[in-house]
Nucleic acid binder design. Structure first.
Length: 196
DNA sequence: TAGTTACA
DNA sequence: GCGA
């Protein structure tokens, strides 16, 4: 794996995945999914919301973290089922400030990008995959370098730390119908980050 | 380009 | 259907 990203295949069993999805349903009821716009006005194909002290956001002013959902309400707390994965792999010294919830329908994808809107890159980024399989691609810390593709499955966890923390990465496609976790299909990705 | 499209 |  490039940049020494750590990949934990099937870290979460079916029961844990189902419990997490149940928690996320409560979250989305309070903080509905939305499609942010990029700086040049194009809406992202991925729908998202957040939990925690901060939520990731984008509009014509660019990328940033916000303290509240677009509705004006504060983001719901990060579910315990999600925090326990962070404690297992990162430790209990510090809690994540943000859990970004990305929902991919069959057509959604995410271009190659870096996670660089946080203050301290020494904290890792933890990513949890739920639902349909996805083709994930990761490269170097500079754009245009070589990349490597990896098929992510439900229950897989990825930890981007060290050199991989600022690696360019994205989702080229999902594989609809490959998981029965979500009754209506699709893929959920959770991204846990320390923001400040 | 946290987006599209082109090319193999 | 991928990868640049």
């Amino acid at each position: 794996m490039p940049g020494a990203a750590e990949y934990f295949a099937a870290l979460l069993d079916d029961r844990e995945q189902a419990a997490m999805v149940a928690d996320l349903r409560t979250v989305v009821a309070r903080a509905p999914l939305f499609s942010p716009r990029t700086r040049f006005g194009k809406p992202m194909s991925v729908r998202m919301t957040s939990t925690g002290r901060y939520g990731w956001y984008s509009d014509q002013r660019g990328y940033r973290y916000e303290r509240a959902h677009p509705s004006g309400q504060p983001w719901p707390p990060i579910p315990e089922s999600v925090l326990s994965v962070w404690r297992l792999l990162v430790g209990g010294t510090r809690q994540p400030d943000c859990c970004l919830i990305n929902f991919y329908d069959g057509a959604a994808r995410m271009g190659l990008h870096q996670d660089r809107d946080e203050a301290d890159f020494s904290w890792p980024v933890l990513s949890i995959s739920l639902g349909d399989d996805a083709l994930f691609r990761i490269g170097a810390t500079t754009r245009g370098g070589p990349t490597e593709s990896l098929r992510l499955r439900s229950g897989d966890v990825l930890l981007l730390s060290g050199a991989a923390r600022l690696a360019f990465h994205g989702i080229d496609r999902t594989y609809p119908g490959t998981s029965s976790l979500l009754p209506n299909g699709g893929r959920i990705n959770l991204t846990l980050r320390v923001v400040d």
